[in-house]
Amino acid sequence: MKAVFVLNLKSSIKDMYLLFWSILMPFAAIIALRIFLPSYARDYVEGIIAVSVFFYSFMTTAFIALSQRKRGVYNLLHATPMPLWKYIISISSSWALIAITLSYIVLLFAIVINQLNFSFNILLYMTPIILIASLSFVFFSFFISSLVKNEGHLSMTANVLMIPMLLCSNAFFTMEKAPNIIQYISQVNPFEWFVNGIKSAFQTNFSTWGESFLLLLGCLALTLIISLKTFKYNDQ
């Protein structure tokens, strides 16, 4: 497992194109807010971190998984004695590590640009939330990539799932005045749990942090099972 983890980490870090967008877009958002909406700039930091991690852990990995399957390497994996769960957990862990690193980079940038007060406790509470959430999103991306036949289908399916998840959350605007149905959806939205977890890490609100942690842990277990049960080695 360690070799698979390290090799996937090495390969993923070399993908500068994907990393570029996962870092550039949050940086651009932070700078734009600072320039055009300085009074709101601080309020959106958690949302920007959450979106950055979400996009990398879900969208990016779904395309990679689909690409590998279409190349036929999963067929070859199937012919080896490597258990599927070991493979999925190993590569997902490497992607989660990258997601955590991305979040640290975005956080550091936000702190510098917005001159925020930083405490080590933020990292201490944010890290497990990001780890569990990014793993969940990666496992979910395996599931989504197993449903589709090509990149076009994947793009559409991912957008159909991601956009409602983003909109039905407190990432960038409050749900307090949203219609009841939207508020209900936000309560069962894993991305909302993720955002709440990050916000509570910043606010050192242990009760909300604990609730988010447990919900995300449940999400992690469920998405792992779904990804393993639905994993497709090939398109036949």
Partner: peptide, 17 residues
């Protein structure tokens, strides 16, 4: 595996076995 060198593909498949 896309994104992996020749050497890394050998290491990866060795790990699978």
């Amino acid at each position: 595996f896309e994104g992996y060198s020749v050497e890394d593909n050998v290491k990866l498949f060795a790990a699978f076995y």
